[in-house]
Nucleic acid binder design. Structure first.
Lengths: 366, 366
DNA sequence: TTGTAGGCGTTATCAG
DNA sequence: CTGATAACGCCTACAA
């Protein structure tokens, strides 16, 4: 029935004829599925099937549609399609700091993971603010996403409630902690502290320091420190956490070394674990000022495996996380859940372990 | 009218009662605007106005709705809203390599720029492939985005055609080149080559080399080299482009220095411009092997102002691009275009200039 | 393999 | 300031 025509049923006759007064709202310039169908002389559902289940369309019709679609440049309207099917194929990802290499790699992993399947990634940045995270979650929920990917586990109470009420999978990535009601992909950050502490313990060190930068938002660094503290305690040794109060991370590492240089030789730690490679690099670059050499004067190590770490002298021992793999696995998990339709049931935990990369900086000469 | 009830107008009586045969498709569990309206005893359009134009709703109704919305946890379905209003509030961003710091900063700028306004960012990664870019553009177009942000200007012919036919703003970012039919925000990469070349020319250098890494995808580095070549020609000097054939960028810079060290003193250039800071850093870290010192033996400079560049010895002279600002300005441009509704008309070009950061590595001692 | 009818949840339009 | 009605463009359910 072409637009503008009114079906003349008995019912329509009951009303005055001015019933067709509304002006149509159709945006001009874009073709609809009906246009394509009309040109091809088929019904619109056939065109729909051409896109969503081509095997159900006969080869001849399929070929005709292919041509018409190329000629007209028709692209199905996702808004309409997703509304009708109640399946958005949109995945919301909420990042703490899009600009950091780690989160950027995470995003790339997700992006690559979703590249097939026609899943699209909705991205939000929060700058470590839980309130901005809540805002982002709220916005995303309006899009009825196929899944939400988060990068922290300490949400605001309102956000947590929203997530618990959600009807789609929630995946918390990067860190992994116990007893969360959502899927998790990543690794426990405390393990990093443990790994590095054990590395030095195994070499016979007893005085090991952990150098942290005061940055309340980065609770992951705090978790790494906790792993260190616990491991030291288990070994019957005293934990020694150095807190640098410095905006700049390189400078924080440098200041840690400045303080170290002031200490009497006998009291100095044999090893320093930096909360991040950035701090470790800052330390390596500052050392010559004090005539210090690593690992001769003190063994050091970091976390993150920054590209520069392997190239410094001394090369910096580090723990390498795998953010790209984590992003990729999160995407794969979501695709698998979607395929199985067991979306929300039994949250799973997937560990993507870090790797200890031992380099010159941590080889204690005992 | 609760679902399932049929209004018994005269018209409905004319048909047999089996008129309500279809099963409703409503997803259970989510509230709709009608539910909220029914509870409040208003019509659904009033609820719509509560969200989109609250000032048009009386204070008393507004307060009642606020409560009901909190209680029910109602969130408007964006899919339906955007379909009806034909305004998606979705912006598609196509990045070449999400994992690089530059693109990550670009994304953060956009994200921050759109944080208000309820605009959402759809992100795609292409790994420098123009075919993947075309795919991403095609997917995004189905979402009828409010704008598309791209990070290259050499699209496939099909992609270019899609973009020209698009009814929303297209913004090409990062690089800026002449005679494009779209908005552009960024800077001409050739200018970077010019800037650095002039920096050395001004210090009296006549033998200046440009060190490039063979990486066909990174056509921006090529553009920087071209700026150098042109500036040298204008100065009546001979261009001298060194091509490193190396996957790793640090190593490429190191190899450039290896080659330099082999050259007879008299023939050596007085300055080397690296296509990127990464190469420059590789050079600085390799120099001690050859007993070379910058700038005493040769002045060097890079591009990108990597965080480490300022902290090396010697500190590396660099040209600092402003990816975050570029992303932010692209977002602001899109918001402005939306406000003015002059979406596609007269493409604009907005230069976000780079900054030359002169450090020790390039101070020629003439 | 193809088609018909109507719903998905919202907003534009027009009327009070 | 509030409401009735009909789009928006596609897809599910059912029918042939």
């Amino acid at each position: 029935m072409p637009p503008g025509t009114v079906a003349s049923t008995d019912a329509s006759r009951l009303k005055p004829v001015e019933s067709r007064v509304r002006t149509p709202r159709r945006k001009q310039g874009t073709h609809t599925i009906h246009d394509v169908a009309a040109i091809a002389g088929v019904s619109s559902i056939t065109v729909s099937r051409y896109f969503n289940a081509p095997e159900k369309v006969s080869a001849s019709v399929r070929e005709r549609l292919r041509q018409i679609i190329v000629e007209t440049g028709y692209v199905p309207n996702q808004m309409a399609g997703r509304l009708a099917s109640a399946e958005s194929r949109l995945v919301g990802a909420v990042m703490q700091n899009t600009a950091s290499l780690t989160f950027a790699a995470l995003v790339k992993g997700m992006s690559d993971g979703f590249d097939d399947e026609g899943m699209q990634l909705l991205l939000a940045n929060t700058d470590y603010s839980d309130l901005r995270e809540e805002r982002a979650i709220r916005s995303f929920i309006g899009w009825h996403p196929s899944a939400l990917i988060l990068t922290r586990d300490d949400h605001t109470p309102d956000a947590e409630a929203l997530l618990l009420a959600a009807r789609h999978p929630i995946v918390e990535t990067w860190g992994v902690v116990k007893d969360r009601p959502f899927h998790q992909v990543g690794f426990p950050h405390s393990e990093v502290g443990t790994l590095l502490t054990e590395h030095f313990l195994a070499q016979g060190a007893t005085r090991i320091r952990f150098a942290l930068r005061q940055a309340p938002q980065d609770f992951r660094a705090q978790q790494r420190a906790e792993g260190y503290v616990q491991t030291m305690r288990m070994a019957g040794l005293q934990a020694d956490v150095d807190n640098a109060q410095c905006e700049d991370e390189y400078e924080a590492g440098a200041q840690t070394i400045d303080r170290f240089a002031q200490e009497p030789l006998a009291q100095r730690p044999q090893a320093i674990i930096f909360a991040s490679d950035t701090m470790g690099v800052g330390a390596v670059l500052r050392a010559p000022v004090h005539g210090l050499r690593f690992p001769a004067d003190v063994g050091i190590a970091g976390f993150g495996d920054a590209p520069i770490s392997a190239r410094l002298s001394p090369a910096l021992t580090s723990v390498r996380p795998k953010p790209y793999e984590i992003g990729l696995k999160a995407a794969q998990l979501i695709k698998a859940l979607k395929a199985e339709k067991r979306s929300v049931a039994e949250p799973s935990t997937q560990i993507v372990p870090c790797e200890l990369i031992v380099r010159e900086s941590s080889r204690l000469q005992t």
